[in-house]
């Protein structure tokens, strides 16, 4: 408990608000890497995911690639890229690592969203005379949006936790508190840093939860809630562990 009080004291000290190592500064760095990596992941994964979901092709390859990618240790990837590209390219290195981390979740969310749409609904849309493009944008995408948001949410949480490592290659972020405190055994600082990362993660999670509710079409909202009650939140794609 004492440690917790110390950590709070550290957190709420006025010193945390000023200088290059201030909390606002570190939060901005941390959030910046997270958001940038998430955007890049989304730009890569969403079109590919939609294509896989719509044409029902290439899913096996994607599953295999995601499976292989998920075995890659982020720390290893980070160090080897930093070494090969040089610490001057550190920001790019970090973004690459986080994009590798986030892309599979977004991809899975995108195509499983499209695949989750009842085939009868899609068939009916075609029968009404919609073009393939219209089927995708007017039927599949709106109905698949909640799962896509779920995929983005789990990618964001993985990235925000793993972004802790950015400090290891000198990029700041909230991990820098932890990394500088380890050799000095400053537990209050470590705990303070950890709390900040958790709060940031919870805020991001809550934002996506709200977004998920917002994008669920009203007609399926009731049904989803019903099934959620019986199936315990299974509507969102499973998350991986966070670093």
């Amino acid at each position: 408990m004492n440690l917790f009080v110390d950590a709070l004291a550290w957190l709420f000290s006025l010193d945390r608000l000023i200088g290059g190592n201030s909390i606002p500064q570190r939060v901005l760095e941390h959030a910046g890497y997270t958001v940038l990596s998430l955007i890049v992941s989304a730009v890569i994964a969403i079109p590919v995911g939609f294509a896989i979901g719509h044409f029902r092709r290439g899913r096996e390859v994607t599953v295999a690639l995601s499976g292989a990618a998920r075995a890659l240790p982020s720390l290893g990837l980070l160090t080897v890229l930093a070494l090969m590209l040089g610490l001057g390219a550190a920001p790019a290195v970090a973004v690459i690592v986080f994009v590798v981390l986030g892309t599979p979740s977004v991809l899975a969310g995108a195509y499983s969203g499209i695949e989750s749409v009842d085939p009868a609904t899609v068939k009916a849309a075609r029968a009404m005379g919609m073009t393939e493009w219209q089927v995708l944008w007017k039927v599949e995408v709106p109905l698949g949006l909640p799962l896509l948001v779920g995929g983005l949410r789990s990618a964001a949480l993985q990235i925000v936790a793993t972004a802790t490592l950015a400090a290891y290659i000198g990029l700041g972020g909230l991990g820098s508190y932890i990394f500088t405190a380890i050799p000095l055994r400053q537990y209050d600082v470590m705990l303070g840093g950890a709390i900040l990362i958790m709060v940031l993660a919870i805020v991001i999670d809550a934002l996506f939860a709200g977004l998920g509710r917002l994008v669920t079409p009203r007609g399926v909202r009731h049904r989803r809630r019903e099934s959620e009650r019986s199936l315990a939140l299974s509507a969102r794609p499973a998350r991986g562990t966070t670093l």
Partner: peptide, 14 residues
Amino acid sequence: GLLYTIPSLALFVL
């Protein structure tokens, strides 16, 4: 859900 949000490095040190 909260456990997920703890970075592993933080858990290791705490």
